[in-house]
Computed example of a mutant assay.
Amino acid sequence: MKARIKHVLRRARYAAIGAAVGAAVGSVFSRNAASTGGAIGAMVGATVADTQDTATTYLDEARESEFGPFSSDQSNNN
């Protein structure tokens, strides 16, 4: 449950940042462009958050399969 909440909050944060950047760029042109830029920026931000989360998962799985699991339990046994 904690991981799910973390994922949702990360996605919301990236969407908010994307919306702010998109609206700022769009505001240079007009109000309508600011609104559209904010909406597109939010979608891009949410997509980036999902892609980053997926890429991180794949990288962690690849590291564990190639190098073995990284856990502190092995270092404490010595």
Results as ranks from 00 to 15, higher is better:
Arg4His: 11
Lys6His: 15
Lys6Ser: 15
Leu9Met: 14
Arg11Trp: 11
Ala12Val: 15
Arg13Ile: 15
Ala16Gln: 05
Ala16Ser: 13
Ile17Pro: 01
Ala19Arg: 04
Ala20Trp: 10
Val21Asp: 04
Ala23Ser: 08
Ala23Leu: 02
Ala24Glu: 10
Val25Cys: 10
Val25Ala: 12
Val25Pro: 01
Gly26Ser: 10
Gly26Glu: 01
Ser27Val: 13
Val28Leu: 14
Arg31Val: 13
Ala34Met: 09
Ala34Asp: 02
Thr36Gln: 04
Thr36Val: 13
Gly38Leu: 02
Gly38Val: 02
Gly41Thr: 06
Val44Met: 13
Val44Cys: 07
Gly45Trp: 02
Gly45Arg: 00
Thr47Trp: 04
Thr47Leu: 02
Thr47Cys: 03
Val48Gln: 03
Asp50Met: 08
Asp50Thr: 09
Thr51Tyr: 04
Gln52Met: 12
Asp53Gln: 09
Asp53Arg: 02
Thr54Asp: 10
Thr54Leu: 14
Thr54Tyr: 10
Ala55Pro: 03
Thr56Ser: 13
Thr57Met: 12
Thr57Cys: 02
Thr57Leu: 04
Tyr58Arg: 07
Leu59Thr: 06
Asp60Met: 13
Asp60Trp: 06
Asp60Cys: 06
Glu61Gly: 05
Arg63Thr: 00
Ser65Asp: 05
Ser65Gln: 09
Glu66Leu: 14
Glu66Ala: 11
Phe70Val: 07
Phe70Ile: 06
Ser71Pro: 05
Ser72Asn: 13
Gln74Leu: 11
Ser75Thr: 08
Ser75Glu: 06
Asn76Cys: 07
Asn77Arg: 06
Asn78Ser: 03
